[in-house]
């Protein structure tokens, strides 16, 4: 933990720079490239997940407290539930009517 408290906040600056690259990279891929809608969504979706990880590990310091295992299990479980809710809802609501 001590390496966070001295000198220049290098990990924050790197995290911020990476967030900007990922955000504007995603915007560029979505708006300027000629890829298909499906390909664009997979790429920018992946970039969003990477960026969320950067926030969690570089800004929120999920791994620094003594409760790091509980924190990680909690967040991974929440993310799992979130994926089930979003993907499950869309799947049920879009495929249900056509059968």
């Amino acid at each position: 933990m001590d390496n966070h408290s001295k000198g220049f906040p290098i990990s924050h600056v790197i995290g911020f720079f990476m967030s900007l690259v990922l955000t504007f990279g995603a915007a560029w891929i979505a708006l300027q490239s000629s890829l298909s809608m499906t390909a664009v969504m997979w790429i920018i979706g992946t970039l969003a997940v990477i960026q969320a990880g950067i926030q969690l590990y570089m800004f929120m310091h999920i791994n620094e407290s003594n409760d790091r295992i509980a924190n990680n299990i909690n967040i991974i479980y929440s993310a799992f539930i979130a994926v089930v809710i979003v993907a499950g809802s869309i799947w049920v609501m879009t495929s249900g009517h056509s059968h």
């Binding site: 999920i62 409760d67 909690n74 967040i75 929440s78 539930i81 979130a82 809710i85 499950g88 809802s89």
Partner: peptide
Amino acid sequence: FWIFLGAEIVLFATLFGV
């Protein structure tokens, strides 16, 4: 507070699902 944020993730997931 981390556990609360887990609940917030699920709250926003329902809205993203809708």
